[in-house]
């Protein structure tokens, strides 16, 4: 494999996939974001942690188009972008998996994966009779599941309400991976799950990373963050408190940084990339990308 110097030269060439500079967001007199900076590098898993009210959600909302920041810039691949609706970010290839398991229980797995982006049959059946390509969507959903290593879901015609919490979250993640070709944001994906199911979701995150997909993971669960994150962004008082890696600090230190008991000097932080992106960077080829367009 590559030597230390080759690796660092490769790392120095990387520009952030998604970047926020000096983001400010106020709600009335409450300052949620007070000049927050943020950078996600290609192919890495970046955890975002922080106390309640530190501005994690506000920052993620600003980056995913759910909220428009009052000031500051958002850059995607170095280009300045303005997202005013979640649809804008989706169109740019940023998909978000929500804590609330945003799937429709009565609908089947394939229908859920393609909800709002359905594919129709070719020819007259599709154009005049608007007939959906049910078997095609089920086949592509199945391919997507196996490309992410989700083996427990076999029947794409199964309704989602018959699945466990972890399996439902897997459907959400698979949907995000199918249509998100730039960034996948996971907001507390394991908050509602048990131990075994959480492990499944963490494995999914690792699989995404191994395919070169950058992931933002918002979580309260320190052991999980330490297990999968390449870098950890600690949000504090509406700003970037510090960026560290699981290798340089302990969980106890992280809690101290979160509460402000410990300050990390800038030169000791990990503001640059640490992971060389996996070679298969870019969209996961399942044929789903055309449907997104």
């Amino acid at each position: 494999m590559s030597t230390q110097t080759e690796m660092s030269s490769e790392l120095s060439k990387l520009t952030p996939v998604l970047e926020g500079i000096g983001l400010v967001k106020t709600y009335g007199r409450v300052v949620a974001l007070d000049g927050a900076d943020f950078a996600l590098y290609p192919g890495e898993v970046l955890a975002v942690i922080g106390d309640n009210g530190a501005g994690k959600s506000s920052m993620i909302k600003a980056l995913s188009g759910a909220e428009v920041p009052d000031r500051g810039t958002v850059k995607l691949d170095g280009q300045e972008v303005t997202f005013t609706r979640p649809g804008d970010a989706k169109a740019a290839g940023i998909e978000t998996v929500y804590q609330t398991l945003a799937v429709s229980p009565a609908l089947d797995i394939a229908t859920n994966m393609f909800l709002g982006r359905e594919e129709r049959k070719a020819g007259v059946l599709g154009s005049v009779f608007r007939m959906l390509d049910g078997s095609g969507m089920r086949r592509k959903a199945k391919e997507q599941m196996s490309s992410l290593g989700i083996g427990t879901l076999q029947n794409m015609g199964q309704s989602v309400e018959t699945l466990s919490g972890g399996q439902r979250q897997a459907v959400s993640v698979a949907r995000a991976a199918a249509f998100g070709h730039k960034v996948i944001i996971l907001d507390e994906p394991t908050a509602a799950l048990g131990v075994r199911e959480s492990a499944q979701v963490l494995q999914l995150i690792k699989n995404l990373r191994d395919k070169g997909m950058p992931v933002i993971l918002i979580s309260h669960n320190m052991p999980q963050v330490f297990e999968v994150a390449d870098r950890i962004h600690v949000q504090r008082l509406g700003k970037r408190g510090a960026v560290i890696t699981p290798q340089t600090v302990t969980i106890t230190d992280v809690v101290a940084i979160m509460t402000g008991a410990l300050q990390v000097p800038v030169e000791e932080q990990t503001l640059g990339p640490v992971r060389v992106p996996a070679k298969t960077a870019g969209p996961i080829k399942t044929g789903l990308e055309e449907a997104a367009g």
């Binding site: 649809g87 609330t100 609908l107 709002g116 959906l132």
Partner: peptide
């Protein structure tokens, strides 16, 4: 019966009735 079963509009009708928030987040 056809429209509800075989068209995107039909799926969206079910999705909206099933869980409007999930449908909104899915981009409907």
């Amino acid at each position: 019966a056809y429209v509800l079963r075989y068209t995107a509009w039909g799926s969206h009708v079910y999705a909206v009735g099933d869980d409007p928030d999930a449908a909104r987040l899915a981009g409907i």
